[in-house]
Nucleic acid binder design. Structure first.
Lengths: 136, 136
DNA sequence: TAATATCCTACAAAATTAGTAGGGATTTAT
DNA sequence: ATAAATCCCTACTAATTTTGTAGGATATTA
């Protein structure tokens, strides 16, 4: 399951997607309109910014904007930044890979199945974007 | 990601699948061979039993057996028993559904995307079984 | 220089996960 | 009947992760 933090991230990003092209949006207004705790949201937006998904501007008139079009921001990328791995096991994760102790990867049946599951999930999450979320 | 407990569960079930038809297997021998903490494994096996996946026998010569053929035990069922929901959001879970507060389910774009992702994942996890895990 | 806003570090509370302890209940063998 | 073997139940503890909060530093604008 996605953490609450990740759900907040998606709400904030959807908000920014709707304002895309209209200039910076303040954290505080996202916080209020999306009902997300202000300071928690700050952390989230900084993380997204550090990951290269957002740009920020300080001072009056400042705020956050999406760095690229909502069409180009896919859901898998967002999840990886805030939530972590998408795969069900570390040993089948593309971006957070960790070898498992006691199994031989070439023959491990569990791993094979989890690879298939991962691919099926990724095929969706890498194709769908913020655009898909906001379009009614 | 699957919890460590769930990974233990799969290892224990794969073990039982390999012994399927050969009589009960003791917790202690699963614990040793699969390197799973004994008391923790006890909890896991009782849960699987209470969920109807295993049968147990007490006393000498006792232990656990799969209640049905490894072919009939799919991965989604195991995950739901030990790990919980497979969906990425409570509002798109079939077995652990919870309504989300601030969204209209008919129009929520996030929900639509997560439904598609869930279906893709489930299609794999409901089709693959313990048999698939143990067959080399 | 004052106001506005993001950014940084650190902490704290709550929830979940992982594992342990100790003994009770049931079955089998002697 | 009794002892041994084995699962089963309740409760606790420890570790980790999640969900925040606090307070101020830094940058920008007017």
């Amino acid at each position: 399951m996605l953490s609450k933090k990740t759900q907040y991230a998606f709400r904030a990003l959807a908000h920014l997607a709707l304002e895309y092209g209209k200039g910076p949006v303040k954290i505080s207004s996202i916080s209020i309109e999306q009902r997300i705790p202000l300071k928690f949201l700050e952390n989230i937006l900084v993380e997204l910014k550090n990951a290269g998904m957002l740009e920020s501007k300080k001072g009056k008139g400042g705020g956050y904007v999406l760095k690229t079009s909502p069409k180009k921001i896919d859901l898998a990328t967002v999840i990886r930044i805030i939530n972590g791995p998408i795969a069900l096991l570390p040993c089948v994760s593309l971006n957070f890979y960790e070898k498992c102790k006691d199994c031989d990867e070439r023959t491990c049946g569990m791993r094979k199945m989890m690879l298939i599951a991962r691919d099926a999930t990724l095929k969706v999450l890498e194709k769908k974007t913020l655009e898909d979320i906001i379009k009614e």
